[in-house]
């Protein structure tokens, strides 16, 4: 089975240092579990993706392209020549010279099936089984025949540790560049460092003073305060109270007919 992992020159979300994007490192782990895989990078410099050699790839093919040239034609030409059974890519850009749309552009150019947000891949040359993340832990299992391009979701297994020795031994091969590229249209984008933003909690109390909101959020003055205190009740009564409470908070089904 031929597996290709698309590699991009990413940036660390915090430090801005040139690094291999995490999702591509995860893609390498998936690829390495299936068999021998080759990395593919198109860009001015292969140094940016050399890190992938320490994460499980033994070989990277580098298509040298001048800065600012659209990598899609060169990549699709190379992929057409390699005819891989599986192409893995990251899911979205995390800065640097990544755009996040290359997998889609490639799938369109090569008329490949694209399966997004994959967390695991198994199977052989004939049929591939891909587990696709639907968010919040829900998974969908997809079985496909024939070549497929999959993008990797962050919920996939964490990347392998970087091994300096392996990176040293791995090879970056320069492959012929189709210099007939087109310039990427310069999008007007502004790049800013990522900043974690506060999340709004659904159903959180609003209004009132800060102390009241805190009370409501921590349960004081909420349902706990509304409870009744029973001192040494008889077991029957205690059981009734517990059942009533469980029904009230929706753990048990509603009361039986005779009671209503």
């Amino acid at each position: 089975m031929t597996i290709v992992v698309l590699l991009s020159a990413g940036r660390h979300p915090v430090s801005g240092a040139p690094v291999l994007p995490r999702m591509e490192a995860q893609a390498i782990r998936i690829a390495a579990s299936l068999g021998e895989a080759v990395g593919l990078h198109a860009g001015p410099d292969a140094e940016a993706v050399r890190e992938a050699l320490g994460l499980g790839l033994t070989r990277i093919e580098h298509i040298a392209l001048p800065e600012g040239l659209d990598p899609v034609p060169a990549l699709s030409a190379r992929l057409a020549a390699l005819a891989p059974d599986l192409v893995l890519a990251g899911r979205r850009s995390q800065g640097g010279a990544e755009s996040g749309v290359v997998p889609y552009a490639l799938a369109e150019a090569l008329d490949l099936l694209l399966i997004p947000d994959v967390v695991a891949v198994s199977g052989g040359a004939d049929t591939l089984t891909l587990d696709q993340s639907l968010g919040r832990g829900a998974l969908r299992r997809v079985s496909v025949r024939g070549p497929v391009l999959a993008t990797v979701h962050p919920d996939a297994a964490a990347p392998h540790a970087y091994a300096f020795g392996k990176a040293r031994r791995g090879a970056v091969e320069l492959v012929g560049a189709a210099a007939t590229g087109v310039d990427v249209p310069q999008a007007i984008v502004e790049e800013r460092p990522y900043r974690r933003r506060p999340k709004l909690v659904k159903g959180a109390p609003t209004g009132g003073s800060a102390a009241e909101r805190l009370k409501a959020a921590t349960g004081e003055g909420g349902s706990a305060a509304k409870g009744r205190l029973l001192v040494e009740p008889d077991p029957e009564e205690a059981a009734r109270e517990i059942l009533a409470h469980l029904r009230q908070i929706g753990v048990l089904a509603g009361p039986t007919k005779s009671n209503s």
Partner: peptide
């Protein structure tokens, strides 16, 4: 184990990766 095999303990991979990429084991801004 670390340099040749990349066989760090699972939980140590994150801090060491961040250290290499961002200069801080927690990946926090310097």
């Amino acid at each position: 184990q670390t340099l040749e095999r990349g066989a760090l303990p699972e939980k140590a991979v994150g801090p060491v990766t961040e250290l290499r990429q961002s200069g801080d084991p927690g990946g926090r801004p310097l």
